[in-house]
Design a protein around this nucleic acid. Structure first.
Length: 961
RNA sequence: GCCCGGAUGGCGGAAUUGGUAGACGCGCCAGACUCAAAAUCUGGUUAUCGCAAGGUAGUGCAGGUUCAAUUCCUGUUCCGGGCACCA
């Protein structure tokens, strides 16, 4: 009886499906465990082998937990709104709902192929009205709430209105500069004014923000649609444009997002990334008065974390886009300033920060140092961003490397305020120096000077200590079609929320997916929509994905996003597996939404994910063919389809093969014997690497026949082959993507080797957290392992070989050692070593010729999370009736694993030279005596006495000479 | 540029707490079975010197701590991920 994986896998998938084997109840006496995968976007390209890595890991863990007696929730769904579907709609006129539906079906089939234990009854799709109804509903909660800083929590906006009504704004931190009013004043404000003020407090609010505006395309572009300042499609210029935008006031949650990190089990790297993203810093805002020709602007505000360096300020740098720059520019500098502002407008933030070339421009105005009246030139430069702090910094070249380079570049004299700590060549950011050239601060250690300066500034009324965050409020609107409509109507410039009973506000059909007027979204093209004065923006991709883990708990609820009783049962996600690319986006947004819903009493926990495991990326291993071409050096010889093998190319590039030799070999290939010889003068042979589909390459060897059929233009391809008559490809490790032809489709591998082999091989590749290149070659080893395992039960010739014989100690020892290793490794997500442990176990049982049911059935249970189909099949063939999905994880009988002695490595000066079998309970003295008797040790000692003998129980012995 | 990771045989990787570097698998080499091939099985496989016994070097690179370093510390190079409208 053969291992017929195709039949077995089909059969068991059908049975599990029929029996609803993966259905999960919200009501169970067993402890709950919630395993979550990151929400996939159903792309048209379908799955490649990189996608399922995390899903397989979580699937194994979910199955493992089920065997351990937990009620396990392991759902799957789709983050189905998004730009690619909309782009596809623009290009092909197909409604995004239609293409998305197709993509989802394709995805689902691919996922099912791999045999995941998803409870499909709980599937969610963010683009379904039944789902986005609740995204809109949560948005309304955000809109109707404010963050009460005193209570450190979100509250209904009504509580704020009450405060304003009764006490005015004094007790509430002002959101807008200089906006302070009394209760009487509030009550006298007209409706629009009040709404304008409340808008400054709402957790979801409207403001103005810059977008990438492409005039030629008449649309707003995503960052990755902009390359080097022009649109990716068409290469049109892109500039910044201010548009009305929705935002989420995530900055109010900055501190709680930081504190929450202490309660969750994320990697230190992940916590660090989030901490840095939030970027909390303690500093001061200082107002400097300005001296300019026109005198229109009297002061500027800078944010600094180092007020102690106030006497070392040699220049100011202001973000060029701040609106008061042109007002302070002197007549002589005005033109240059305008030109520089124009230049910066064309630059993305990323480019500005990454730019190595120092650029900037003097404004012609000066700031006055409040302590000594010194005139400080005000510059503008792209390295200062408007969005951080006040958009203006103090340039302290002796203490900051970037400031120092700026000063050197523009020949601005440097004031040394740190004495010997500054060498004139390099800035020194120390806080330990005693200040010099610093007036009343001379001799004070910098660290201590900070509070002295802050005190003085406050006394003078020109500065306040200030906590600052690098994180900005999250832009929450897109000028797009394929997203959730905002449940907001605008009347006379005031935003009104729709009634709850009006939800969902359905996304209307449109005739065209092209943008609306003035950079508005496509919804602005619909007269009925505009008539109803509905918001024309839609929500961004992360709207639906910020709360989906809650919907899985109670996916069909029509009266709430999730029943409180149900979320109380499932509570936090116990294990979340996903890539680090979501470190600061999705993970922060969903943590914020969870905190808001917690504050408002809709759920009972404020951190969504208890534990996070980051999966690495599977990279593609690209293959290249090399097309030969003659440069235009005065020749009319055209080679269209000559491909040179990688080995020949290598010799050519290294110079081992001359251009003439290569030319004549190619000529021979093209023309046969009657080849005209000689490279035309001035001509050069170029070998262009071209990506070739990895699926027609075996290792590095190209299937030349398949290549000729691959694309019509290669039909007549000629190949310059290696000596042994094969064509070798070049290779490189790159991101896996369709355009690089390096994607490998899991369906094909599943078809060829089965889902069980595929699952185990993905895990066997290496640690789940680590990125690694895909290589299909090794999959056969895993497949061989499963067949070897099968042979413990059934033999092709002999049929059944398993027996009911009683097992002996050596067999028990092997199986219990395997169980223990497997359990430990699975528990710590070390799935690759888990697979190895199984292989070792099967190798050892084969060596022992162990075919005993009582041993083998334990093996099947620990195998089941990794390779569920074969495990279930053999489980039943052994005569078990229930499903192995619900078997109990076998317990280890320690008695079989007790050892009395160990082979110790005996090292001389730390280098292993011998091995000795020593009893585990041996004492230091016994060991020393034994070791000194050892021949190898004697040889190395050469008659001398050892300096020391180190004996670490159960580890090693080291003889120091 | 800034933040976070990673680097070990021909390849993927193992070494869980500082204690036998290279488990397991691929590939390769040799052998068995076979008319032959496939499949399967057995043995070998870091480099280098040596007939062997055995020695020497070795975990990106340069240093350091230690009886002992892939593991800890300092510096450095290269590669990957993210940087706010891809999801």
């Amino acid at each position: 009886m053969e291992y017929d994986f195709r039949k077995i896998e089909k059969q068991w998938q059908d049975i599990w499906n029929r029996d609803h084997a993966y259905r999960v109840s919200n009501d169970s006496p067993r402890p709950k465990y919630y395993v979550l995968d990151m929400f996939p976007y159903p792309s048209g390209a379908g799955l490649h082998v990189g996608h399922p890595l995390g899903y397989i890991a979580s699937d194994i863990y979910a199955r493992f937990k089920r065997l351990k007696g937990f009620n396990v929730l392991h759902p799957m769904g789709y983050d189905a709104f998004g730009l690619p579907a909309e782009q596809y709609a623009i290009e092909h006129g197909i409604h995004p709902a239609v293409s998305t539906q197709q993509n989802i079906e394709n995805f689902r089939n691919q996922l099912n192929n791999i045999g995941f234990c998803f409870d499909w009854d709980r599937e969610v799709r963010t683009c379904e009205p039944s789902y986005y109804k609740w995204t809109q509903w949560i948005f309304l909660q955000l809109f109707k709430s404010w963050y009460n800083r005193a209570a450190k929590r979100a509250e209904s906006i009504e509580t704020l209105v009450d405060i304003f009504k009764n006490q005015g704004s004094h007790s509430v931190a002002p959101q807008r500069k200089n906006l302070v009013f009394s209760a009487q004043e509030w009550n006298a404000f007209d409706h629009a004014t009040r709404e304008g003020i409340l808008m400054d407090y709402r957790l979801a609010y409207c403001g103005f923000g810059e977008v990438n505006w492409c005039e030629a395309l008449g649309t707003v572009l995503a960052n990755d649609e902009v390359v080097n300042g022009v649109s990716e499609r068409g290469g049109h210029p892109v500039v910044k444009k201010k548009l009305r935008q929705w935002y989420l006031r995530i900055t109010e949650y900055a501190d709680r997002l930081l504190e929450g990190l202490e309660q969750v089990d994320f990697s230190d790297a992940m916590k660090e990334m989030q901490t840095n993203w939030i970027g909390k810093s303690y500093g001061a805002e200082i107002d400097f008065s300005i001296k300019s020709e026109k005198g229109e602007v009297d002061s500027m505000r800078v944010y600094t974390t180092r007020p102690d360096t106030i006497f070392g300020v040699d220049f100011m740098v202001v973000a060029p886009e701040l609106d008061w720059i042109e007002a302070i520019a002197s007549a002589g500098q005005f033109e240059e300033v305008s030109r520089y502002i124009g230049y910066v407008r064309s630059r993305s933030e990323r480019e500005r920060q990454a730019e190595k070339k120092i650029s900037g421009c003097f404004t012609g105005a000066y700031a006055i140092n409040p302590f000594n009246g010194r005139e400080i030139p005000i510059w503008i430069s792209e390295y200062v961003l408007a969005g951080y702090g006040t958009g203006a910094i103090m340039g302290v070249p002796c203490g900051d490397e970037r400031d120092f380079r700026f000063a050197s570049h523009f020949h601005i004299p440097v004031t040394n305020i740190i004495g010997d700590f500054f060498n004139g060549e390099q800035a020194n950011p120390t806080k330990d120096a005693r200040l010099t050239n610093s007036d009343f601060l001379n001799g004070v250690v910098m660290r201590d000077a900070i509070s002295i300066v802050n005190g003085k500034l406050e006394e003078m009324g020109i500065g306040t200590p200030k906590v600052n965050y690098r994180m900005r409020d999250a832009a929450f609107s897109r000028q797009r079609y394929w997203g959730e409509p905002f449940p907001i109507a605008w009347r006379q410039g005031v935003a009104y929320p729709l009634e709850e009973k009006e939800l969902p506000l359905l996304l209307p059909e449109v005739d065209t997916y092209s943008p609306g007027p003035e950079g508005e979204g496509p919804l602005a093209n619909i007269p009925q929509w505009v008539e109803r004065e509905l918001e024309t923006n839609t929500m961004p991709g992360y709207a639906g994905s910020s709360w989906y883990f809650l919907r899985y708990m109670d996916p069909h609820n029509e009266t709430a996003f999730c029943d409180r009783k149900v979320s109380d049962y499932w509570n936090q996600v116990d294990l979340y597996i996903g890539g680090t690319e979501h470190a600061v986006g999705h993970l922060l947004y969903s943590r914020m939404w969870t905190k808001v819903l917690f504050d408002l009493g809709y759920i009972g926990f404020e951190e969504p994910f208890k534990k996070l495991v980051n999966q690495g990326m599977i990279q593609g291993s690209s293959r290249f063919v090399y097309r030969a071409q003659l440069s235009a050096g005065g020749t009319d010889i055209k080679w269209d389809n000559i491909f040179v093998s990688a080995g020949i190319r290598e010799r050519f590039e290294k110079g081992d093969l001359s251009p003439e030799q290569l030319f004549s070999r190619i000529n021979l290939l093209v023309h046969g014997d009657s080849a005209p010889a000689g490279l035309p003068p001035g001509a050069e042979i170029l070998l262009h690497p071209l990506h070739v589909d990895v699926n027609i390459v075996d290792g590095f060897q190209l299937d030349t026949k398949a290549f000729s059929k691959w694309k019509p233009e290669y039909a007549n391809a000629l190949f310059l082959l290696e000596q042994d008559g094969i064509y070798l490809c070049g290779s490189e490790v790159e991101k896996m993507s369709k355009s690089k032809f390096n994607t490998v489709n899991p369906d094909e591998l599943v078809g060829k080797y089965g889902a069980d082999t595929f699952r185990m091989y993905e895990m066997f590749l290496g640690p789940v957290e680590q990125s690694k290149p895909w290589d299909t070659k090794g999959i056969e080893g895993v497949h061989r392992f499963l067949r070897k395992l099968w042979r413990l039960f059934y033999d092709e010739q002999k049929g059944q070989v398993w027996t009911l014989d009683k097992a002996g100690a050596p067999e028990w020892k092997v199986i219990y050692r395997t169980i223990r290793k497997m359990e430990e490794d699975t528990e710590r997500f070390s799935f690759n070593t888990g697979v190895s442990a199984l292989m070792i176990g099967v190798n050892e049982l084969s060596d022992l010729k162990c075919h005993k049911k009582e041993v083998l059935e334990k093996l099947l249970v620990i195998l089941a999370p990794y390779a569920p189909h074969i495990a279930e099949e053999l489980w039943h063939l052994l005569g078990n009736s229930g499903s192995i999905l619900d078997a109990a994880y076998p317990a280890v009988e320690e008695i079989y694993l007790v050892e009395s002695a160990k082979n110790y490595p005996i090292a001389i000066n730390g280098k292993t030279r011998a091995e000795m079998n020593i009893a585990l309970d041996a004492t230091q003295l016994q060991v020393e005596a034994m070791v000194l008797e050892n021949e190898t040790v004697k040889k190395w000692l050469d008659g001398k006495a050892p300096k020391k003998i180190i004996y670490v129980k159960n580890k090693m012995v080291n003889v120091v000479i």
